[in-house]
């Protein structure tokens, strides 16, 4: 099992870096090209959500991403240290219900629609979002 870990300060500018790293490792791990856009967007959403949560609760704390090649799956876990508010947004069809600020539940809905497999572990001390996609394995050369 190969693992890459990345920690970054809770700054919006770093979310793009996290997306790029995740996409590069997904490609290296053997995730199909057609799924890479989904990996990029889902990891970006998870990191954006974590950055917003940290900026509100603990701006000095870093956000951690773990990327693993695990038994034919490419698995990404994004961990934050902000207390979970467990906001669950229903399908946002009512314009009046939407705001132009970042919507936590909205981002989670996007992740759920993109990742092959998603688990969210909210706790009072932070949230882990684990996502995975099928992968062919690390090439030998």
């Amino acid at each position: 099992m190969a693992t890459v870990e990345l920690t970054f300060s809770a700054l919006p500018a770093h979310v793009r870096t996290a997306r790029l790293v995740a996409t590069a490792i997904a490609r290296r791990t053997g995730v199909e090209e057609s799924l890479l856009d989904e990996v990029r967007l889902a990891v970006g959403e998870a990191c954006s959500r974590a950055v917003e949560a940290h900026r509100a609760h603990c701006p000095g704390e870093p956000i951690r991403i773990e990327l693993r090649d695990d038994a034919g799956r490419f698995e990404v876990t994004v961990s934050d240290h902000a207390p979970s508010d467990e906001v669950q947004q229903e399908k946002p069809l009512d314009l009046g219900m939407l705001s132009d600020s970042f919507m936590t539940g909205f981002g989670l809905a996007v992740i759920s629609g993109l990742a092959d497999d998603v688990e969210v572990f909210p706790t009072p001390k932070g949230t882990d979002i684990r996502m995975s996609w099928p992968a062919a394995g690390i090439p030998t050369s």
Partner: peptide, 18 residues
């Protein structure tokens, strides 16, 4: 690339023009 933050901005713009 477009994420939910961008969607939120477009929705905000739509609300303003409406």
């Amino acid at each position: 690339f477009l994420d939910s933050t961008g969607l939120g901005v477009l929705v905000g713009g739509l609300k303003r023009v409406r």
